[in-house]
Each structure stands twice: as C-alpha cells, then as structure tokens.
C-alpha cells in the first residue's frame, strides 16, 4: 500500500472559555488515502468539526491543539508556521464549511471570492482568474455562470451558496477536500445533487474527501470508509459496508437501530436515549458508558481501540473502542450482545 495522503495521530484539541476548558478532541487517529472518501459521523458536539479544522489549524478563538501530528504528504502540518500553512490552505487542501449562509463574505461578489484564492496561490492574471472562476461555476453547475459571478452571496439560495463554497474549495485542484456537513443546511433534493457532485469530482479529479455528517444515510451513499466519533474520541471505524453489516460498538448499533432504512437520507442522528457528555468534564472511563445499554463495571476505565487482531468479530480495517471487544471479555457476553 502507498503512504497515506493524510495521517492524524493522537490529535487533542481544547477550547479554553471563561466557563471552563472544553476537551473537544481527545486523541483521534485518522488515516486517509488518495482518492478516498472518509465519512465522519457522530452527534452534535462529538468533535467532528474540531477534528477537521484542527488539521489546518483553523480554530476559532480559544482553540488550542495540545498534542498530536497531522502528517500530510510527508510534512506535519501542526508544526508549520501560519505563513507556511497558508500555502497549504486553499491550495493543497480545500475546505467547505458547515453553514453556507454565513461562510461567504456578504460584501464581496462571489466571483471575487473565488478569484481571490486563485490569485493567492497561482501566478495568473485577473482575467485568467475570472475565466477560471466561471469555469469552476460551470463545474459545480451553477446556471448562467457568466452573469451570476458578479452577484453577491445574498442573491443566491442556500444550495447555490454551498456550490459557490465548493467552487472556492476546488479552485486550486486540491488533493484533499474537507467538507464539513456540506449538505446539512440544505433540503433533500439539493443534498443529493451536492453529494453526487462531490462523488463525481472525486472520480474525475481523484481527490480525497473527508466528509462530515450527522447522517448515516449520506455515509452509506457516499463514503468508502467511516469513523464514528463520540465525546471527542473515535468509537468505531470501518469500511462502510462492514459498519452497516457488522457494527461492533454499542453506540454505532444505537445509531443504526434508530434508522429503519439506512438508505433513507433524511434520517438525522439523535435517537440514542440520553444526552452527550459535558466536554468540560468528560467521563473518565468510556465516554458512552452513561448511555450504554451494555455498560459494565470495567467501563469506568477507558477502553482501548481494538482491531481485527484482538477479536475475530472485527473485520479487516475495523476498529472499535469498547470493552466488549477485549480478548478477555467473557464469551457469553459477546453472545448476548452480538
């Protein structure tokens, strides 16, 4: 296998606020190969956005990466200076943000907002940048690109704005696209179009995508591999088919059980009883223990991430952070839950 395009190791990020320190990401590992679509799922507040944005150190005020490495194409991004990072941002790695309504500058035409990123990273003339911007508009299927390019963001619908965002992210042909819930704010038909567009672009341009979503339906349709996040940690990780066929983590099972038909894409995640932990003071053991139907005494100590080597029930490239997968776990327990 070739070296991964991106590899995160033990990423930890916290937000220091006046109401305490939020441990948003607590030791996430992630590997991504060229041309791969990796899905990131989890409830609100599980740390999906913070994980993604930490890769490029795009944190809001108060956010600090306290440990970890993010090796992209041989260099650790977390060790780069702001100036060095800005050569990666927008050029090698494009980002699409969660909320298309607020992610565009309201006082600048969308054309300029696209041209800007081209002029920043490519030695091209303004005219060429404009031509490329129109081309990108066509690529993301915005009708009458030539005239719409001079409009302001408020003159576009949410779906169209998200296309503009994608056009900005794609402007410099990035090798990696980070798409943070690119469709959550949109209605179902638009959502399908955008996802289809992303997949098509991956196939055509060969870029890797990290796709963040609440929605397992979206994952089933789009991703190759999926990571389930909870309480700032990876709970389970698997190829998409394996996750749906043989989920191992009680949290994943809870998520799947709540969707009658995983192919239905309008099924948002909030079905597991209970609420997510307060990340200012996360549980010391398994973060899911307070809500877990299988919780055991041992769950008050943090479980490891178990792989296929630890238990025969895990498929290749499947990992789970649950005591049930511990080789020492009694066999009858596994019967009862599996």
């Amino acid at each position: 296998m070739t070296a991964p395009l991106l590899s995160l190791r033990d990423l930890r990020t916290e937000y220091r606020t006046d109401r305490g320190t939020v441990q948003a990401v607590r030791g996430v590992d992630l590997t991504l190969h060229r041309g791969e679509i990796l899905g990131l799922v989890g409830e609100s507040g599980s740390g999906k956005s913070v994980t993604c944005m930490s890769i490029l150190k795009l944190l809001k005020r108060g956010g600090h990466i306290t440990s970890g490495t993010a090796v992209y194409d041989g260099t650790d991004l977390l060790k780069l200076s702001e100036a060095q990072l800005s050569r990666v941002r927008g050029d090698k790695i494009g980002v699409v943000f969660q909320d298309p309504m607020s992610a565009l500058n309201p006082t600048m035409t969308v054309g300029r907002q696209i041209e800007e990123v081209l002029l920043q990273h490519r030695k091209i003339s303004k005219k060429a940048a404009r031509a490329r911007a129109i081309e990108l508009f066509k690529l993301v299927r915005i009708p009458s690109a030539e005239t719409r390019i001079d409009n302001y963001p408020h003159e576009f619908s949410g779906g169209m704005r998200q296309r503009v965002m994608i056009a900005i992210a794609l402007a410099c042909d990035p090798d990696l696209l980070i798409a943070d819930e690119p469709t959550t704010a949109l209605d179902v038909t638009i959502q399908r179009q955008i996802l289809a567009l992303l997949k098509e672009l991956r196939d055509r341009l060969g870029m890797a995508i990290i796709l963040v979503t609440h929605d397992l339906g979206v994952i089933a349709e789009t991703a190759d591999r999926v990571m389930v996040l909870y309480g700032g940690q990876v709970m389970e990780q698997a190829r998409v088919t394996d996750l749906f066929e043989a989920p191992q983590h009680p949290y994943t099972r809870g998520l799947l059980a709540a969707i009658p038909d995983p192919r239905r894409s309008d099924s948002a995640l909030s079905p597991v009883p209970g609420s997510p932990p307060d990340m200012r003071a996360p549980p010391s053991g398994c973060p899911f223990a307070p809500r877990c139907p299988n919780a055991m005494a041992i769950c008050l100590t943090p479980p490891d991430l178990y792989g296929a080597g630890d238990t025969p029930r895990l498929r290749p490239a499947q990992y789970t952070r649950c005591w049930l997968a511990d080789p020492a776990a009694p066999a009858d327990l596994m019967e009862a839950t599996g």
């Binding site: 200012r280 003071a281 809500r291 877990c292 009694p330």
Partner: peptide, 26 residues
C-alpha cells in the same frame, strides 16, 4: 495489549444509575 487481564467481576453489568457516571457539569 499490555494491560493486565481484568478480574471477572469487572464484567458485571453496571448497576448504578448511569447518569451518576458523568461528572456533573461545573
């Protein structure tokens, strides 16, 4: 895994009120 094997009673279901496990918010 280098951890010592847990004792058998550790695999007993957790009887306490699960919500007590989460340390209360500040």
């Amino acid at each position: 895994m280098t951890r010592a094997a847990p004792s058998p009673e550790m695999w007993q279901p957790l009887a306490t009120n699960p919500s007590a496990l989460a340390e209360g918010p500040p």
